[in-house]
């Protein structure tokens, strides 16, 4: 069976080649992993006060939340808009469009391969975190781990579709990545990466839950950390955003390809 040109041999070939490619960039990927330590900086700021308790976290809950937020971000970060924009401008998109495989699959494979390459670096940073905060050490149960894995996978998929939607704007505007930067501010504040959503005033928190951002970090991080969370509502919201974004991306892509001028190619 094939989905937009994707079959098992294609999946295998794409992952093997993309992993080999990512290994070439291992030093850069290690630096990317290291650059995601913002949650630890936030933790060190909050830990000087009793903020954790006032946010509703008990004991080491806040530390576990921020470590989980770090790990979720490590495995759900997406850069497709930048890669796509460069490929479109330099004409590298053209050969992809002339093969019987939807070009977005190549970017999916690149992201998955990058996660595999990044994994040891992320785990290493987490180990250092536990050395610094030994009391916060925990290992999630198998069930907790599987649920968190699913939540992170869905968070990555939503993030990927959001960026793909913006990337499709490259067919209209040569600098669609500027729009992605516009999303950074609401992402930082509403996702729970900087501050747990529990710290928000009620109205702001309620408003955040109408956006996709809390389901990109806050929800999966709470699942991974074993903090109180409404699993059914969280997964339902993730599926809702996926269902909404997927047809939008496909429509934008189809309309965009009609406008494609193969500039630079």
């Amino acid at each position: 069976m094939k989905i937009a040109g994707l079959s098992w041999p294609v999946v295998r070939a794409l992952l093997v080649s993309q992993h080999a490619n990512m290994v070439q960039y291992r030093a850069e990927i290690a630096l990317w992993a290291l650059s995601g330590v913002l949650p630890f900086i936030m933790l060190s700021l909050w830990s000087q006060s009793d903020a954790g308790a006032s946010f509703g976290f008990k004991g080491v809950g806040l530390a576990r939340y921020y470590l989980s937020a770090f790990m979720v971000r490590q495995f759900s970060v997406v850069w497709v808009v930048f890669a796509f924009e460069e490929d479109a401008l330099l004409g590298r998109l053209s050969p992809f469009l002339l093969q019987p495989l939807h070009p977005l699959w190549r970017y999916v494979a690149a992201h998955v391969a990058e996660r595999v390459t990044r994994f040891p670096f992320s785990v290493g940073i987490a180990a250092i975190f536990f050395l610094l905060y030994p009391t916060s050490f925990w290992l999630p149960s198998l069930g907790q781990f599987l649920l968190a894995f699913l939540a992170i996978l869905l968070a990555f998929s939503i993030n990927f579709l959001l960026q793909s939607l913006i990337a499709a704007l490259c067919f209209w505007s040569e600098k669609a990545s500027a729009l992605e930067r516009l999303l950074l501010i609401p992402y930082l504040y509403c996702s729970g990466w900087l501050v747990p959503l529990a710290a928000f005033p009620d109205a702001a928190r309620t408003a955040s839950f109408w956006t996709p951002f809390p389901y990109l970090i806050d929800f999966p991080a709470r699942v991974l950390a074993g903090l109180p969370v409404d699993l059914v509502a969280g997964f339902a919201a993730q599926l809702f955003w996926l269902t909404l974004l997927l047809p939008l991306v496909l429509m934008a892509w189809r309309a965009g390809v009609r406008r494609y001028t193969a500039m630079g190619a």
């Binding site: 080999a20 590298r92 019987p100 495989l101």
Partner: peptide, 30 residues
């Protein structure tokens, strides 16, 4: 698409940092 090909001089489809055989195995699968 399986019946045609477009070759553009100075433009490439091969993955820059890998040997051509890696890109060829992807093409074969596709």
């Amino acid at each position: 698409l399986k019946q045609i090909t477009l070759v553009m001089g100075q433009k490439q489809q091969l993955i820059w940092d890998l040997p051509p055989l890696d890109s060829l195995s992807v093409n074969a699968a596709v």
